[in-house]
């Protein structure tokens, strides 16, 4: 399959506007592991001939880690510049594979002048599955396989999206098992609040070790995530806890594997 990743600028030059903007995010653009998730999502978008575009070189950090660390200046500088670009392209709908980008674009850009319909890729994929556009033919790779889903704080508690990612996993016919704490009670992976960008404070354990313990306890072979930072944290944690036994994938990667794309 020939993959296309048009930019907003290219489409604008042809006088076209896409149906959705795929907000890739910093991790999705630069982190080697997260790039694989980006690629998987692009494969789905191409497979379904969805009219999408990315901002490419014009995309910039949403400012989320700065804001959560307490640096409102750096956040708003980034936000106001992003809003100028988004509004210049008259963006209406954004889909992103990062819950941090999702939360901040959805909730904190709106009263700075950037009001968009923002969805997380799990919601977008659920929508496609529900509409029958995205089908996973029965007996796929994951039939009966034990998969556990880790709720990202900024998808779950922050925006109460609990069912969409699970619906995607169920479409794969997987055996979905829950961790000791899940959904609104789900334990953080340890990356949020700009912790991703610094060493943890003194303690007796790292947060990702604790979450990885819970994930391994389920006996699942696969830990599914919907966030590039949870991906890093849980990959590290499970590798330490149960080396070679558990693999961490984003839900869209599992979907691509399931469809053999």
């Amino acid at each position: 399959m020939e993959l296309k990743v048009p930019t907003m600028a290219e489409l604008a030059a042809e006088g076209r506007t896409p149906e959705i903007l795929f907000w890739v995010g910093c991790a999705g653009s630069f982190d080697q592991r997260a790039i694989k998730v980006t690629n998987a999502f692009v494969k789905i978008l191409n497979h379904l001939n969805i009219n999408f575009a990315i901002l490419g070189k014009e995309e910039a950090c949403t400012g989320d880690p700065a804001k959560r660390a307490g640096n409102e200046f750096v956040f708003q500088m980034a936000a106001l510049q992003n809003i100028e670009i988004l509004n210049a392209y008259q963006v209406r709908k954004i889909v992103t594979t990062c819950p941090h980008c999702f939360n901040i674009l959805k909730n904190e850009y709106s009263n700075l002048g950037g009001a968009y319909e923002v969805v997380h890729h799990s919601q977008y994929l659920q929508e496609l599955i529900d509409q029958g556009k995205l089908k996973v033919e029965g007996g796929g790779t994951f039939k009966g396989k034990k998969i556990t889903f880790h709720d990202s704080c900024y998808l779950g508690r922050a925006n109460e999206v609990y069912e969409a990612p699970r619906a995607v996993l169920e479409a794969l016919d997987a055996d979905l098992v829950e961790m000791k704490t899940a959904k609104s009670k789900g334990l953080c992976c340890g990356a949020g609040g700009a912790q991703m960008f610094k060493e943890e404070e003194r303690g007796n354990q790292r947060v990702n070790q604790k979450r990885a313990e819970q994930a391994v306890e389920t006996g699942a072979e696969i830990v599914a995530v919907g966030c590039p930072f949870c991906m890093t944290m849980l990959s590290d944690g499970t590798t330490e806890k149960a080396p070679g036994k558990v693999k961490v994938f984003d839900i869209v990667e599992l979907l691509v594997q399931g469809k053999g794309l």
């Binding site: 930019t7 910093c26 653009s29 630069f30 490419g56 070189k57 950090c61 700065a66 500088m77």
Partner: peptide
Amino acid sequence: LMFSNIENNAAPWQFSQQDRD
């Protein structure tokens, strides 16, 4: 470092914005 990267490179890490795509 993260703050100055966001300001200067538009990402929390030290990557160039030109390499974003």
